[in-house]
Protein backbone atom coordinates (compact mmCIF):
# COMPACT_ATOMS: atom_id res chain seq x y z
CA UNK A 1 0.00 0.00 0.00
CA UNK A 2 1.53 3.27 -1.06
CA UNK A 3 1.57 6.35 1.20
CA UNK A 4 -0.96 7.98 -1.10
CA UNK A 5 -3.42 5.16 -0.64
CA UNK A 6 -2.77 5.34 3.09
CA UNK A 7 -3.75 9.00 3.05
CA UNK A 8 -6.95 8.26 1.15
CA UNK A 9 -7.76 5.37 3.51
CA UNK A 10 -7.86 7.91 6.30
CA UNK A 11 -11.57 8.86 6.57
CA UNK A 12 -10.85 12.18 8.20
CA UNK A 13 -8.56 13.26 5.39
CA UNK A 14 -10.88 12.04 2.67
CA UNK A 15 -14.01 13.57 4.11
CA UNK A 16 -12.89 16.68 5.97
CA UNK A 17 -9.69 17.92 4.36
CA UNK A 18 -11.30 19.28 1.16
CA UNK A 19 -13.93 21.18 3.14
CA UNK A 20 -11.38 22.51 5.61
CA UNK A 21 -9.18 23.68 2.73
CA UNK A 22 -12.12 25.44 1.15
CA UNK A 23 -12.99 27.14 4.45
CA UNK A 24 -9.43 28.36 4.85
CA UNK A 25 -9.36 29.69 1.30
CA UNK A 26 -12.72 31.46 1.73
CA UNK A 27 -11.74 32.96 5.07
CA UNK A 28 -8.39 34.18 3.72
CA UNK A 29 -9.79 35.43 0.43
CA UNK A 30 -12.57 37.49 1.98
CA UNK A 31 -10.36 38.95 4.70
CA UNK A 32 -7.63 39.73 2.13
CA UNK A 33 -10.04 41.67 -0.04
CA UNK A 34 -11.41 43.59 2.96
CA UNK A 35 -7.89 44.21 4.26
CA UNK A 36 -6.80 45.78 0.98
CA UNK A 37 -10.02 47.82 0.68
CA UNK A 38 -9.57 49.26 4.17
CA UNK A 39 -5.79 49.15 4.53
CA UNK A 40 -4.83 50.85 1.27
CA UNK A 41 -6.77 54.06 2.00
CA UNK A 42 -5.33 53.99 5.52
CA UNK A 43 -1.81 53.60 4.12
CA UNK A 44 -2.48 56.45 1.70
CA UNK A 45 -3.70 58.59 4.59
CA UNK A 46 -0.57 57.77 6.61
CA UNK A 47 1.60 58.72 3.64
CA UNK A 48 -0.30 61.87 2.67
CA UNK A 49 -0.39 63.33 6.18
CA UNK A 50 3.24 62.58 7.00
CA UNK A 51 5.80 65.41 6.79
CA UNK A 52 6.70 65.78 3.11
CA UNK A 53 3.45 64.09 2.05
CA UNK A 54 0.76 65.58 -0.20
CA UNK A 55 -1.08 67.27 2.66
CA UNK A 56 1.14 67.21 5.75
CA UNK A 57 -1.06 67.15 8.87
CA UNK A 58 0.99 66.59 11.96
CA UNK A 59 -1.95 65.86 14.29
CA UNK A 60 -3.82 63.53 11.94
CA UNK A 61 -0.58 61.70 11.16
CA UNK A 62 0.25 61.08 14.79
CA UNK A 63 -3.27 60.05 15.81
CA UNK A 64 -3.68 57.64 12.88
CA UNK A 65 -0.12 56.41 13.35
CA UNK A 66 -0.82 55.71 17.04
CA UNK A 67 -4.03 53.77 16.31
CA UNK A 68 -2.25 51.72 13.65
CA UNK A 69 0.62 50.94 16.01
CA UNK A 70 -1.78 49.83 18.74
CA UNK A 71 -3.48 47.56 16.21
CA UNK A 72 -0.14 46.13 15.18
CA UNK A 73 1.12 45.56 18.68
CA UNK A 74 -1.82 43.40 19.80
CA UNK A 75 -0.99 39.69 19.45
CA UNK A 76 -3.56 38.10 17.15
CA UNK A 77 -4.74 35.53 19.70
CA UNK A 78 -5.67 38.32 22.11
CA UNK A 79 -7.21 40.55 19.44
CA UNK A 80 -9.32 37.65 18.23
CA UNK A 81 -10.83 37.06 21.67
CA UNK A 82 -11.09 40.75 22.56
CA UNK A 83 -13.23 41.53 19.52
CA UNK A 84 -15.65 38.62 20.01
CA UNK A 85 -18.57 40.92 21.00
CA UNK A 86 -17.91 43.08 17.96
CA UNK A 87 -17.77 39.97 15.77
CA UNK A 88 -21.11 38.78 17.14
CA UNK A 89 -22.60 42.23 16.44
CA UNK A 90 -21.35 42.27 12.84
CA UNK A 91 -21.83 38.64 11.77
CA UNK A 92 -24.46 37.47 14.24
CA UNK A 93 -22.31 34.59 15.47
CA UNK A 94 -18.75 33.96 16.60
CA UNK A 95 -18.46 30.57 14.94
CA UNK A 96 -17.54 29.58 11.39
CA UNK A 97 -15.18 31.06 8.86
CA UNK A 98 -17.45 34.06 8.24
CA UNK A 99 -17.03 35.14 11.85
CA UNK A 100 -13.26 34.70 11.64
CA UNK A 101 -13.12 37.25 8.84
CA UNK A 102 -13.73 40.05 11.37
CA UNK A 103 -10.68 39.54 13.62
CA UNK A 104 -8.54 38.53 10.64
CA UNK A 105 -9.36 41.77 8.84
CA UNK A 106 -8.93 43.87 11.96
CA UNK A 107 -5.57 42.29 12.61
CA UNK A 108 -4.30 42.60 9.05
CA UNK A 109 -5.45 46.15 8.22
CA UNK A 110 -2.86 48.00 10.36
CA UNK A 111 -0.15 45.60 9.17
CA UNK A 112 -1.04 46.14 5.51
CA UNK A 113 -1.49 49.90 6.00
CA UNK A 114 2.13 50.20 7.19
CA UNK A 115 3.41 48.09 4.31
CA UNK A 116 1.39 50.20 1.85
CA UNK A 117 2.73 53.39 3.42
CA UNK A 118 6.32 52.27 2.96
CA UNK A 119 5.64 51.15 -0.62
CA UNK A 120 4.27 54.65 -1.32
CA UNK A 121 7.29 56.21 0.34
CA UNK A 122 9.52 54.41 -2.17
CA UNK A 123 8.14 56.63 -4.95
CA UNK A 124 10.72 59.39 -5.40
CA UNK A 125 9.55 62.88 -4.33
CA UNK A 126 10.90 64.11 -7.67
CA UNK A 127 8.09 62.35 -9.52
CA UNK A 128 5.52 64.02 -7.31
CA UNK A 129 7.19 67.38 -7.79
CA UNK A 130 7.19 66.89 -11.57
CA UNK A 131 3.49 66.04 -11.49
CA UNK A 132 2.77 69.15 -9.43
CA UNK A 133 4.69 71.38 -11.84
CA UNK A 134 2.58 69.92 -14.66
CA UNK A 135 -0.52 71.21 -12.90
CA UNK A 136 -1.86 67.91 -11.49
CA UNK A 137 -4.50 67.94 -8.79
CA UNK A 138 -3.71 66.07 -5.58
CA UNK A 139 -6.17 63.34 -6.55
CA UNK A 140 -4.41 62.80 -9.86
CA UNK A 141 -1.02 62.66 -8.12
CA UNK A 142 -2.31 60.12 -5.62
CA UNK A 143 -3.79 57.83 -8.26
CA UNK A 144 -1.67 58.27 -11.37
CA UNK A 145 1.68 58.85 -9.71
CA UNK A 146 1.89 57.52 -6.16
CA UNK A 147 -0.29 54.42 -6.31
CA UNK A 148 0.56 53.58 -9.90
CA UNK A 149 4.32 53.93 -9.37
CA UNK A 150 4.15 52.02 -6.08
CA UNK A 151 2.07 49.20 -7.61
CA UNK A 152 4.84 46.55 -7.73
CA UNK A 153 5.61 47.28 -4.07
CA UNK A 154 1.91 47.27 -3.17
CA UNK A 155 1.46 43.88 -4.84
CA UNK A 156 4.35 42.51 -2.78
CA UNK A 157 2.72 43.99 0.32
CA UNK A 158 -0.53 42.19 -0.57
CA UNK A 159 1.37 38.92 -1.00
CA UNK A 160 3.03 39.23 2.40
CA UNK A 161 -0.31 40.10 4.00
CA UNK A 162 -2.16 37.16 2.42
CA UNK A 163 0.54 34.77 3.60
CA UNK A 164 0.26 36.19 7.14
CA UNK A 165 -3.52 35.86 6.95
CA UNK A 166 -3.13 32.15 6.23
CA UNK A 167 -1.11 31.70 9.37
CA UNK A 168 -3.56 33.83 11.41
CA UNK A 169 -6.46 31.83 10.00
CA UNK A 170 -5.03 28.67 11.54
CA UNK A 171 -5.01 30.42 14.89
CA UNK A 172 -8.59 31.46 14.36
CA UNK A 173 -9.31 27.74 14.03
CA UNK A 174 -8.72 27.47 17.78
CA UNK A 175 -11.87 29.43 18.58
CA UNK A 176 -14.18 27.74 16.14
CA UNK A 177 -13.40 29.30 12.79
CA UNK A 178 -13.01 25.92 11.12
CA UNK A 179 -10.57 25.51 8.27
CA UNK A 180 -7.24 23.70 8.16
CA UNK A 181 -6.15 25.08 11.52
CA UNK A 182 -9.17 23.62 13.29
CA UNK A 183 -8.68 20.29 11.54
CA UNK A 184 -5.01 20.11 12.45
CA UNK A 185 -5.72 20.93 16.07
CA UNK A 186 -8.71 18.68 16.69
CA UNK A 187 -7.25 15.60 14.97
CA UNK A 188 -3.53 16.11 14.75
CA UNK A 189 -3.10 17.57 18.24
CA UNK A 190 -6.01 16.36 20.34
CA UNK A 191 -6.30 12.86 18.81
CA UNK A 192 -2.69 12.23 17.76
CA UNK A 193 -3.67 11.56 14.13
CA UNK A 194 -0.32 12.39 12.59
CA UNK A 195 -1.50 11.75 9.04
CA UNK A 196 -4.11 14.52 9.34
CA UNK A 197 -1.56 16.90 10.80
CA UNK A 198 0.90 16.21 7.98
CA UNK A 199 -1.82 16.54 5.34
CA UNK A 200 -2.86 19.94 6.75
CA UNK A 201 0.74 21.15 6.78
CA UNK A 202 1.28 20.01 3.20
CA UNK A 203 -1.84 21.81 1.96
CA UNK A 204 -0.88 25.01 3.77
CA UNK A 205 2.66 24.92 2.42
CA UNK A 206 1.38 24.38 -1.12
CA UNK A 207 -1.12 27.25 -0.82
CA UNK A 208 1.51 29.64 0.60
CA UNK A 209 3.98 28.70 -2.14
CA UNK A 210 1.35 29.24 -4.82
CA UNK A 211 0.43 32.66 -3.44
CA UNK A 212 4.07 33.71 -3.23
CA UNK A 213 4.84 32.55 -6.77
CA UNK A 214 1.80 34.30 -8.24
CA UNK A 215 2.41 37.46 -6.18
CA UNK A 216 6.06 37.65 -7.28
CA UNK A 217 5.11 37.09 -10.91
CA UNK A 218 2.50 39.84 -10.85
CA UNK A 219 4.87 42.28 -9.12
CA UNK A 220 7.54 41.53 -11.71
CA UNK A 221 5.10 42.05 -14.58
CA UNK A 222 4.18 45.47 -13.20
CA UNK A 223 7.73 46.58 -12.57
CA UNK A 224 9.25 48.35 -15.57
CA UNK A 225 12.25 49.91 -13.83
Amino acid sequence: MSWWDALLENDIIRERLPLATLETLEMVAVSSVLTVLLGLPLGMLLHATSPGGLTPQRTVASVVGFVVNVGRSLPFVILMIAVLPFTRWVVGTTLGWQAAVVPLTLGAVPFFARLAESALREVSPGKVEAARVMGSTRGKILGAVLVREALPGLVSAVTVTVVSLISFSAMAGVIGAGGLGALAISYGYQRFDTAVMVACIVVIVVVVQAIQVVGDAVARRLDHR
Partner: peptide, 29 residues
Protein backbone atom coordinates in the same frame (compact mmCIF):
# COMPACT_ATOMS: atom_id res chain seq x y z
CA UNK B 1 1.78 76.11 -14.53
CA UNK B 2 0.87 74.61 -17.90
CA UNK B 3 2.59 77.57 -19.48
CA UNK B 4 5.81 76.57 -17.73
CA UNK B 5 7.68 73.46 -18.82
CA UNK B 6 10.22 71.99 -16.47
CA UNK B 7 13.16 69.66 -16.98
CA UNK B 8 14.78 67.97 -13.99
CA UNK B 9 18.25 66.67 -13.24
CA UNK B 10 16.86 63.23 -12.43
CA UNK B 11 14.27 63.51 -15.23
CA UNK B 12 11.51 62.15 -12.95
CA UNK B 13 9.71 60.10 -15.57
CA UNK B 14 7.03 57.68 -14.39
CA UNK B 15 8.58 54.20 -14.64
CA UNK B 16 5.19 52.52 -14.87
CA UNK B 17 4.27 54.39 -18.06
CA UNK B 18 5.63 54.01 -21.55
CA UNK B 19 7.55 56.89 -23.08
CA UNK B 20 4.45 57.94 -25.02
CA UNK B 21 2.26 57.82 -21.90
CA UNK B 22 4.81 59.91 -20.01
CA UNK B 23 4.72 62.59 -22.69
CA UNK B 24 0.92 62.36 -22.70
CA UNK B 25 0.69 62.93 -18.95
CA UNK B 26 0.62 66.74 -18.98
CA UNK B 27 -1.91 66.60 -21.82
CA UNK B 28 -4.18 64.36 -19.72
CA UNK B 29 -3.85 66.79 -16.85
Amino acid sequence: RRRIGMVFQHVNLLDSRTVAANVAYPLEV
